[in-house]
């Protein structure tokens, strides 16, 4: 168990180091430097700028400095927004994204599992068919299309919600719905197939034969076992919601980290791109690491197979 967790943790660190290294050298590979475009600047000032950003030193020294700074949580200064620290920009805007993302994750889990469970319980009946059609649609329609449609129907035409902005609790509804559509579809399908399997398992028959109350069977045995595959999806789901929020924030005018990321890409603000990429990388890798650990705790069978391999 400890060995398993340590090895997963080491993997995460190595991957992170590779991502950081890749960002650094890719950004170095861009021809020219960030101050090339400022033509009116006299050479002395340009040199002064280069010195300030450490760009006059050899690449290896810059890399070492970069690693050291990142370890201290310092991603440097934005190249396009004067006097703004990348770390500050991230911490200022991440709050909104985090709130939105967490709500979307909770909604996806609750609705997805419920939908999948209902579909499994009413297998091949109306509910099942409707749920599966919804699930297929959720997978097929890109989230930014879902977002625009929701915005059009519920905000523009019906006027129930605000078209833009992120202030009251009502402003959560549309972005969360758009973000959660795809994860809900995935979770519903996963839950349905695993619940179907569990429902036909011998131990459920045994439990019924013992005369256990159906509700007890459902929550003690069926749901607990059927929910396992959903846990493996937690990591990818976080990734899905984070990338989704990049687009959704833009559409609904939410001042989150996703919006910063989009504008940093279109402005080619390299330090900001690097910082946000590494920040996202850390979150995604942590999510995957926690998923791996959670899975071992919930399903002891995993340990055995891993010991056999390693």
């Amino acid at each position: 168990m400890v060995r398993y967790i340590t090895s997963k943790f080491l993997y995460m660190l190595v991957s992170l180091l590779i991502l950081i290294t890749a960002t650094f050298f890719l950004m170095k590979a861009i021809p020219g430097n960030p101050f090339m475009s400022e033509k009116q600047v006299p050479p002395q000032i340009r040199e002064r700028l280069m010195e300030q950003y450490g760009l006059d030193k050899p690449v290896i020294v810059q890399y070492g400095q970069y690693l050291k700074n990142i370890a201290q949580g310092d991603f440097g200064i934005s190249m396009k927004m004067q006097n703004k620290e990348v770390t500050g920009l991230i911490t200022d805007t991440f709050g909104a994204s985090l709130k939105l993302g967490l709500v979307a994750i909770v909604v996806s889990l609750v609705v997805g599992v419920l939908l999948g469970l209902l579909a499994a319980l009413y297998h091949r009946r109306l509910i099942d068919n409707v749920a599966m059609v919804l699930a297929v649609l959720g997978i097929a329609v890109p989230s930014f299309v879902v977002a625009s449609m929701l915005q059009f129907v519920f905000a523009q035409k019906a006027g129930i919600f605000n078209v833009m902005g992120f202030n009251g609790p009502l402003d959560y509804v549309l972005p969360v719905a758009a973000l959660a559509a795809q994860p809900i579809a995935f979770i519903a399908r996963l839950t349905r197939s695993s619940m179907l399997e569990v429902l036909h398992a011998d131990y459920i028959k045994t439990a019924r034969a013992k005369g256990l109350n159906w509700m007890t069977i459902l929550f003690r045995h069926v749901v607990r076992n059927g929910i396992l595959p959903v846990i493996t999806y937690l990591g990818p789901m976080t990734a899905n919601i984070i990338t989704g929020s990049v687009v959704i924030e833009q559409i609904f005018g939410i001042g989150g980290l996703g919006k910063v990321f989009v504008s940093s890409i279109s402005n080619r603000d390299y330090t900001l791109i690097m910082g946000v990429t590494i920040f996202y990388g850390v979150i995604l890798m942590l999510a995957r690491f926690l998923t791996d650990i959670a899975y071992v705790f919930v399903d002891p069978r995993i340990k055995l197979t891993n010991r056999k391999e390693g």
């Binding site: 993997y11 590779i18 991502l19 890749a22 950004m27 990734a239 791109i273 990429t277 996202y280 995604l284």
Partner: peptide, 15 residues
């Protein structure tokens, strides 16, 4: 695999 896929893609296309 544990390096987030879209991030690498985005980085490559920025460069």
């Amino acid at each position: 695999y544990s390096i987030p896929y879209l991030l690498v893609t985005i980085l490559l296309l920025v460069v």
